[in-house]
Simulated scan of single mutants.
Amino acid sequence: MKNLKKRRRIQVIVVAFVALAVSTALIGYAMRDGINFFRSPSQVAEAPPDASEVFRIGGLVEEGTLVRGQGETVTFSVTDGGASIKVAYTGVLPDLFEENQGMVGTGRYINGVFEAEEILAKHDETYMPKEVVDALKEQGVYVEPDAES
Rank of each mutant, 00 (worst) to 15 (best):
L136H: 00
G28C: 08
G140Y: 00
T65Y: 01
P129W: 03
D124K: 06
P129S: 09
R32I: 07
D124W: 05
S84K: 06
D146K: 04
G69D: 13
Q101A: 05
V15C: 12
K122L: 06
K122W: 07
I13N: 04
D95W: 12
Q139H: 05
L96S: 07
V141D: 00
Y142A: 01
A25M: 06
G28T: 09
R56I: 09
Y127D: 04
G58M: 01
G64Q: 03
P49S: 05
E62T: 08
E118R: 15
G81L: 00
Q70V: 11
V54A: 15
E115Q: 13
V14I: 15
D50S: 08
S84R: 04
V67G: 04
V61Y: 04
V143K: 14
H123P: 04
R108T: 09
A45V: 09
L4S: 15
V104K: 05
A25N: 03
V92E: 12
S52K: 10
S23A: 12
P94Y: 06
R32A: 05
G59F: 01
R9Q: 12
E46D: 15
K130R: 12
T73W: 09
A45Q: 12
A21G: 14
K137M: 01
D95E: 14
N111V: 11
I119H: 08
P129R: 02
P41L: 02
M128V: 07
E131R: 03
G140F: 00
V113N: 03
G82D: 11
G140T: 00
A51S: 04
V133N: 00
F55R: 06
L120S: 13
G64W: 00
D146T: 02
M128G: 01
I57A: 06
G91E: 13
E62F: 03
V15L: 15
K5L: 12
V12C: 12
M1D: 13
Y29Q: 10
I85M: 07
M1K: 13
A121V: 05
P48L: 01
E72S: 15
H123N: 11
E72N: 15
K6H: 09
V15P: 09
A135S: 01
P41T: 02
P41A: 07
G28V: 08
K2G: 11
E125Q: 08
R32E: 05
S40W: 00
V74Y: 08
F114N: 04
I10Q: 13
K5Q: 10
D33A: 10
V54R: 14
P41Q: 06
V18T: 09
D146L: 03
I10L: 14
T79N: 02
A88W: 04
S42A: 15
S77N: 08
V18P: 07
N100P: 02
M31G: 10
G140I: 00
Y29W: 13
M128F: 05
V141W: 01
G34F: 12
L93H: 08
P129M: 04
P48E: 00
I110D: 14
L60N: 10
E98S: 11
